[in-house]
Design a protein around this nucleic acid. Structure first.
Lengths: 136, 136
DNA sequence: TTAAATGCAAAAAATTTGCAGACGT
DNA sequence: ACGTCTGCAAATTTTTTGCATTTAA
């Protein structure tokens, strides 16, 4: 995970094993709640404390490294900052996936209707994922 | 607020002054956090307890009367259930507004790409509202 | 070497629960 | 009258903070 070490270093944020563990965990799972992250990291890093996870999530969010995904009906999940994108969440299994959707038109419409200077767009679609549909 | 009395009554949920106060407050302000609701209602109804606000929000959400709006960067706000719609939030003053946007195309795209059976759509745009733009 | 990070325990904030009395229907 | 709701206090849960020690650079 060389790439993350450098990304962190370039941003007045020290590279600690705890931080790398968080980043690597997210790099694998993509979307996890605080508690999920903590439990997962404890397996490889039993001494980590929950406070450290909180502090680091907050620090990395302040630096723009990480973003909160406010999922309807469940706890917030966190992801490493990537290109802007939308999310799809399965109402059955809770899984969250990224999806690249074109929100240009919708954003234009909104700007015209509200006169807002629109800066951010957060779209979360929910439904039943193919796996859960098959299973039921 | 006759209308709400009947709506509540038709749904095995008793009409109490506390509940009417919550509903009337939201009917006026549309989007409020738990704490905002509690503070506002206390003015007209000093004996209400925070626990009652929580219990009623939860009860009315269970009944589908009320919905949580998970706003990026601030506490969740609540609104009375209306026709599906999107939201615009001002990053400066925190105000949340409803907006009717056509998400048909975007939803279709998402369904095609993910094979999800899409049921819900939550879009929150953020930016600077006209009032804050003028003021700055 | 030095400022920043960790981990613990304690504090604070947010939310839920149990229960006796009050209230809606 | 009956079952539900309220308000209080206590219990949980979630998140933040202070501080002594350790660690990255």
């Amino acid at each position: 995970m060389e790439k993350y070490e450098n990304l962190l270093r370039n941003s007045n944020i020290k590279v600690t094993p705890q931080r790398l563990a968080i980043v690597e965990e997210l790099d694998g799972h993509v979307h996890m709640s605080i508690e999920e992250l903590y439990e997962a990291i404890k397996k490889k890093f039993p001494s980590i404390s929950l406070a450290t996870v909180y502090k680091n999530i907050n620090a990395m969010m302040d630096q723009g490294f990480m973003q909160e995904v406010k999922v309807p009906g469940q706890k917030s999940k966190y992801e490493l900052t990537k290109a802007p994108h939308s999310h799809v969440v399965c109402e059955n299994c809770g899984k969250v996936e990224d999806i690249a959707l074109d929100l240009e038109k919708v954003t234009q419409d909104a700007a015209n209707m509200t006169r807002y200077e629109v800066r951010g767009k957060a779209l979360i679609l929910s439904g039943i994922c193919p796996a859960c549909k098959t299973a039921s």
